[in-house]
Amino acid sequence: MEQIDIAIIGGGPAGIAAGIYGARGMRRTVLFERAVLGGQIATTGDVENYPGFPDGINGLDLALAMHRQAEQFGAETRYESVTAIRQEPPYIILTTDEGEVQAKTVIVTAGAEPNKLGVPGESELVGKGVSYCATCDAAFFRGVPVALVGGGDAALDEALFTTRYASKVYVIHRRDTLRASQILQDRALAHPKIEFIWDTVVEQVNGTDAVTNLTLRNLKTEQTSELPVAAMFVFIGQTPNSDVLGGLVPLDNGGHVLVNLWMETPVPGLFAAGDLRAEAAKQLVSAAGDGVTAAIRAEHYISDHFDHRE
């Protein structure tokens, strides 16, 4: 079976940062990505809070630059899904859709997946007006009204981006206060194209070939209404991609992996880092930091448990 020193599952900032350190440490490092590189920054516009970029940087450019750096040190990228992880001491065996590999250490940086509303019409109209990525799709809705669901940082960030194209952006939020940071709240509340619809949920997405309108329900008055829009963008949080670790390591109630300060799980040689782990700050820079912490510990683990035998 093919042997890898450091297998990384997930090509977002945590995984790529781990890849830079793993490969630079001259360990055979392979990054497994099941879809596209970059993780959540691949669908983010500008990043204003990454240290070292006072003028901001495009999220994708940053991800691509990080990935190029990892490859320069010799990290390998494979577009494969890891479907199972099992212990075969002293190794950890990964099953992918292409076969099995034997890893001395595994760093799981699988991140989180956007939540769906779960209302009628939503899944049927994905790609026809329902979207979880305003950065990708907002430009298809020039000069028409659109709706955006959510009240956190991601929701307001994307609402502000969407105003570049749409004639009007309705932000539908189930409460009457926002969770988003003050700076984003101030910008969104002051924006002439953004209108907030408070205490309200989407009951149904209507349309056949394209979204035509949303059925809304006010949670305080219980009144329903119709909102004519051409698109609905959804930003209502994420669920960690911890399924692949099912039964192997303890999770918190939200499905995040419990780790110590070295990103170690109770399984020797198995680490979790980034948004997937419990108590994460869920920031680009902290995810990258997590990945680095895990890679440094993985390097120690390999030299303690394997190098003296070889």
């Binding site: 590189l37 516009g45 999220g59 950065t135 990708c136």
Partner: peptide, 13 residues
């Protein structure tokens, strides 16, 4: 489209 970041990420695949 040139402005679509994720499209650039799909390109290598």
């Amino acid at each position: 489209a040139p402005w679509c970041g994720p499209c650039r990420m799909v390109a290598p695949i």
